[in-house]
Design a protein around this nucleic acid. Structure first.
Length: 546
DNA sequence: CGTATTTGACCTGCGC
DNA sequence: GCGCAGGTCAAATACG
């Protein structure tokens, strides 16, 4: 009976999706030759704007550089210069041959153009100053971030030393095992590179640490049935084990003794086969579930966007592994997993809104354990930061439990309009919802930014990096820090600077996409390109040299 | 033939 | 304990 209804519903929904798969619809092929059916390119508009902005930024910087040397405008502004020379030549050499009547009018025209030129020059000068100010701000942000990073590394090393001093005999035995020693070495070798990623993936790191622990637990205790992991997974797990130290120490919550180290919660094992969890003893499972599920929730980031496409393109490769009818929604929910990295734990659910089927709801869960292409960096960093923020806010601090709702609402997304980003810590999973189907009102726009976004979808998508950049790249990260460490003053001042920089950036929508994407990339992937923040300037410098 | 998708079955958690 | 719903698995199928 129900199945008949479900089938009917499925059929109905397919009738919605089928046209998208019809020959006249776009069936895309990415560079890997894999088929991507009718995706909405989430950052296509953004990318285009990024390219535009890059060019514009280069121009501004060139002008600004000349401006600082006090050089005249003729060299630096060839376009304007051409007009000026033409005017000068024209009014000078041909003046005698000109009719008197036309001559006076041309003089007026020349004066008018000269005034226009002066206005333009003043505008350029103002833009140059603004540009310089933004560069200084970004530089300050980067410096402060690096300083914090150093503190984190120092803290991690200190805690790791303490951990080594207090290792249980079991752990000593594990480390004496050859493979584990190798992992430890790899971990330490990649230490400096891992830190920023861990910093971003703190929320997931907690899950990952558990998966790592569960795997190690299998190796050390039930090695007989443990399936061999490939090298990639091994190395990734090494990274996770480092984050394990970081997060446990910072949160001060996860027990370092006996079963806590081996908590085999299947919920956090990424794509480890179920066989692994089944090999856990019931005692371990119980202990793990009691320890982890009581304090950890699965953080999710949900994005609502209007789209006729069956899936939004976020730069990652996804493989569909299931589809299910959800209660209360006639449209089926599709389940995807990331296939860009081996054993990547990231999943996403795609479902159309029951009330408005033009709205596509994409829910991300987990953090990528592999390098991401630039196109995927923005969304991945966003979801990572949002999930981390959510977990950090819902996790207890040293002073006690932080109310996730109030804490997050006030500190995590202070610049994000409530209508665009909402936080929910309700069961079963805490979720950040970014509603891209709405346009913020002027009163909702952060930092007094005027509402310049028409409600049409492509324009609306421009709000994504704004929201993400403001709310997640800056604020959420610091809220994570605040909840973990006693770096309040430093981080608050840093947050203030980021706020100021963000305010300056968002004041000019033309800069928003490029700068926010850059900042997001910096925060999300500092370890791989620690000078990414300088890329804006260095690249422009190199461009200006060419 | 290899890979991706589909889809029914199965597992798990939760409420009653 | 039972049923429901969400989530995942894996064999079957489709596709290039």
């Amino acid at each position: 009976m129900e199945s008949a209804a479900s089938d009917h519903s499925i059929h109905n929904c397919r009738s919605i999706e089928r046209p998208l798969l019809s020959p006249e619809t776009t069936v895309d092929h990415d560079h890997h030759g894999k088929r991507i059916v009718d995706e909405l390119d989430f950052f296509a508009d953004n990318k285009g704007r990024l390219m535009e902005m890059r060019d514009q930024t280069v121009e501004v910087r060139e002008e600004g550089a000349h401006d600082h040397h006090g050089v005249g405008q003729e060299k630096q502004l060839p376009d304007v210069n051409i007009g000026l020379n033409l005017l000068t030549t024209y009014t000078g050499s041909d003046k005698s041959s000109m009719d008197d009547g036309t001559s006076s009018s041309r003089n007026m025209e020349d004066k008018h153009r000269t005034n226009e030129l002066a206005v333009l020059q003043a505008e350029l000068g103002r833009m140059s100053v603004e540009n310089q100010r933004l560069r200084v701000m970004i530089s300050q942000v980067n410096n402060n971030y690096q300083a914090l990073q150093v503190q984190i590394v120092t803290l991690m090393q200190r805690q790791q030393n303490q951990k080594a001093d207090h290792q249980t005999p079991e752990q000593h035995q594990m480390i004496n095992n050859g493979s584990v020693v190798l992992e430890e070495k790899q971990m330490m070798n990649g230490f400096n590179h891992i830190v920023p990623r861990q910093f971003m993936d703190m929320g997931r790191a907690e899950k990952d640490e558990l998966s790592q622990c569960s795997l190690e637990g299998c190796r050390s205790q039930d090695c007989s049935g443990s399936p061999p992991q490939n090298d990639i997974v091994e190395s990734m797990e090494c990274c996770k084990s480092t984050s394990h130290v970081l997060h446990r120490d910072l949160s001060g919550r996860i027990s370092t003794t006996n079963g806590g180290e081996d908590s085999p919660d299947q919920e956090f094992q990424g794509w480890v086969p179920k066989k692994v969890s089944k090999m856990m003893s019931p005692r371990d499972v119980d202990q793990a579930s009691s320890e982890t599920m009581s304090m950890i929730k699965k953080a999710r980031v949900s994005v609502r966007a209007r789209s006729d496409a069956s899936m939004i393109s976020d730069g990652c490769q996804w493989r569909k592994y299931g589809q299910k009818m959800a209660k209360g929604n006639p449209c089926p929910r599709a389940y995807y997993r990331c296939t860009m990295g081996t054993g990547c734990p990231v999943r996403k659910q795609v479902q159309r809104c029951a009330e408005d089927r033009t709205i596509l709801v994409t829910t991300y869960e987990g953090h990528h354990n592999h390098p991401l292409p630039p196109a995927a960096m923005a969304m991945a960093s966003t979801t990572s930061a949002a999930a981390s923020m959510l977990l950090s806010g819902s996790m207890p601090s040293a002073d006690g439990l932080i109310s996730s709702n109030s804490f997050l609402a006030r500190s995590a997304l202070p610049n994000c309009p409530p209508s665009l980003a909402t936080l929910s810590a309700s069961a079963p999973f805490p979720t950040v919802t970014l509603d891209l189907t709405r346009t913020p009102t002027s009163s909702e726009m952060p930092l007094g930014q005027p509402n310049q976004l028409p409600p049409s979808f492509p324009q609306n998508m421009m709000s994504v990096p704004q929201i993400l950049g403001q709310a997640l790249s800056s604020q959420s990260k610091f809220s994570v820090l605040d909840s973990f460490q006693g770096l309040d003053s430093a981080t608050h001042s840093l947050a203030d600077k980021v706020n100021a920089a963000t305010a300056a950036v968002t004041a000019d929508p033309n800069f928003t996409a490029a700068l926010v994407a850059a900042i997001t990339s910096i925060i999300g992937n500092v370890h791989s390109n620690n000078n990414t923040n300088n890329n804006i300037t260095t690249r422009n410098n190199s461009d200006s040299n060419t």
